[in-house]
Design a protein around this nucleic acid. Structure first.
Lengths: 144, 144
DNA sequence: TATTTATAATTGATATATCAAATATATGAA
DNA sequence: TTCATATATTTGATATATCAATTATAAATA
């Protein structure tokens, strides 16, 4: 009925938005007042505390200005604490607080469960194929 | 900088954002100051002028409140004009202005070209498969 | 060293996202 | 008709997205 080329991006958009909503709801059962992106930032900083704000921005595919404001908010919420890095006073050291770590621990299994539900009945091969096609699109868009 | 382990949702997110950026750039070569979503709204209203704001919101997968503000802006930019509908004074008739129609005409081939580039080297079957997988995910998320 | 250039982060302006509450109008039931 | 409920839209508050401009510091170079 529909022509895929005309609706693929619509479906992609719909999927990502639906997943965000779904995640948010499940998050809220365990932890108050955290978004999917904030959780992702906590994760990155926990794994690699040396990251700069700009590096994180790139990792989570956001603008530096957005990151500034998100980090600021996360500091205000006491998920993170921030101090100037003496070796380079333009940058900050950003650390998870104990509250931040606690949140991360609570959310990790929720994420796993979210993915499990999202991908129920879908084989690894099918997901790999999905990634492959999306990466082709990405390559097309970046190399023209 | 090293590339982090990517999840499917990360790739989906990255794809949609990259496509939005790509579209925006190509739009700006032809028309000033219009976003992908605004173009989509013009398209829907051109095809189905009887749509209410809430119906459009659902079609473009946005909140009613966002739609109010977007329509407002598009009226301010003279893409649209709006008048109260006498049969139901809660609703509006929203029409494209000649400027709105002109923009739509200019952008239609750009969209086609954008898709062509995005999907270069990808078969219809592959795209259909992509849709299929995404729809499975959507069904999973909506039925749990 | 002094000056230029680059980098990290912030700020300002404007648009959009989201949720809750409010407003206006329509519809249905008592 | 009158009251309760539903619907369409708006508004307010707060967060995020985007672009351009600014600030502070570091690095490069004349």
């Amino acid at each position: 009925m529909e022509i895929p080329a005309k609706t693929v991006f619509y479906t992609i958009e719909r999927t990502i938005k639906t997943y965000r909503r779904f995640s948010k709801q499940n998050f809220s059962k365990v932890v108050n007042d955290i978004t999917v992106d904030q959780k992702l930032i906590l994760q990155y900083l926990n794994d690699r505390p040396e990251l700069s704000q700009n590096e994180i921005a790139e990792l989570v595919f956001k603008d530096n200005a957005s990151l500034t404001r998100m980090i600021e908010l996360m500091v205000r919420k006491r998920f993170l604490k921030r101090s100037i890095r003496p070796e380079d006073r333009r940058r900050f050291n950003i650390e998870l607080t104990s509250k931040g770590k606690e949140i991360l621990e609570k959310l990790t299994p929720v994420i796993a469960e979210n993915r499990k539900r999202a991908f129920a009945g879908i084989t690894e091969e099918e997901l790999a194929q999905l990634q492959l096609t999306l990466n082709k699109i990405l390559t097309n868009l970046n190399h023209t």
